[in-house]
Design a protein around this nucleic acid. Structure first.
Lengths: 196, 196
DNA sequence: CCTACCGATCGGTAGG
DNA sequence: CCTACCGATCGGTAGG
């Protein structure tokens, strides 16, 4: 029970301040115990981080699979847009998203191998959701017959770009950017002659 | 002279390790002086950061103006692509680029206002270069007649996305991503019926 | 520009 | 799960 509390509070602190700026005293305070009591549950600070990292990785994969997919009676455009919006909203507004952004973009040096492993795993989960939609879109002649690798690449660049921008614009401007960038992406990806 | 050395070495350390993980002892070692001597040139650690931040901001604006523009006897496509490639290459391979990436994505809390100011200033410099090219492109019917705000927005999202991806892919994969994402952007921005 | 030093805080330990 | 404590290191100061 206490162990789960330590992990939960550590996740929040790592997400908001980063690993290096979070002290064991911060964690103990958040949990409501004294600092040395943490050592009843974890060997050291690094062990807490790794435990949190792999736990979050699992939860994120589950989340992506269950929440970002849209049933097959929606159009390709709707399914792609839904994936885009849900993924962005999750990464912007959840503690897990913040944590994941931090550790992937500026990994604490000691853990860079573990973090890369987790990153590639989650990207693979997303790719597995994305590729069937794109292939279906190409088959229906809604999406240009470009290599799927190129299409997924452009999709990831789009979402990654908005991650960064989310830090600098207020909600309203960010939402305009999100829509504007999506529209240009969609124009690029759409089959010519199919514009609405 | 020593003051400039302190700023130069601090820039490198901040770029590679981040502000919080750089100690005054690190800086002093890199410069080749003892830690207290730093206080002959700066009031405290924060003053070093702000000094570096604004100095780099100026240099970056100058760089953008002088290096990313291409003379008017190139096509719109060439000028846009050149701006894109030059900007990305600079952000990926220079110490200044690394510094910017760090501070814009996870700003040290105490400086978030200053960092936002610098980010918006540099974005404005880039907008002033970008908008005339886009307007010319629309006039020549090479670029879709979308609002320039939407076109610049998509361009920034594209570069920001790659800006981050450069951190977690090797050079080869990154270069493929850079090309793939550009092509989709260009397809979205290009006037229909003008595809090469 | 240096030596010598400060109080605060870091991750972690001893011992109950 | 706690009190009491460790050596190392942090940003910063005194004084020359």
């Amino acid at each position: 029970m206490t162990k789960e509390n330590i992990m939960e509070e550590s996740l929040t602190l790592f997400a908001n301040q980063g690993y290096e700026n979070t002290t064991l005293a911060n964690i103990a305070d958040a949990v409501g115990i004294k600092k040395p009591s943490i050592y009843n549950h974890f060997d050291n600070k690094e062990a807490i981080f790794l435990s949190v990292l792999y736990h979050v990785a699992e939860r994120e994969s589950d989340y992506l699979i269950s929440e970002t997919s849209l049933s097959k009676d929606h159009t390709i455009a709707e399914r792609l847009k839904h994936l885009y919006c849900t993924y962005l909203d999750h990464m912007s507004n959840s503690t897990e998203g913040m944590f994941f952004k931090r550790v992937t973009f500026f990994p604490p040096e000691d853990f860079s191998d573990d973090i890369q492993e987790v990153f590639l795993m989650i990207e693979k989960t997303l790719t597995d959701i994305l590729v069937p939609i794109l292939e279906q879109g190409i088959k229906e002649k809604v999406i240009r017959p470009l290599p799927t690798e190129q299409l997924t690449s452009a999709f990831y660049t789009l979402t990654n770009g908005l991650f960064l921008e989310e830090n600098f614009y207020d909600k309203e401007v960010f939402h305009k950017r999100q829509e504007a960038s999506w529209e240009v992406f969609w124009l690029g990806v759409q089959c010519p002659g199919k514009e609405e």
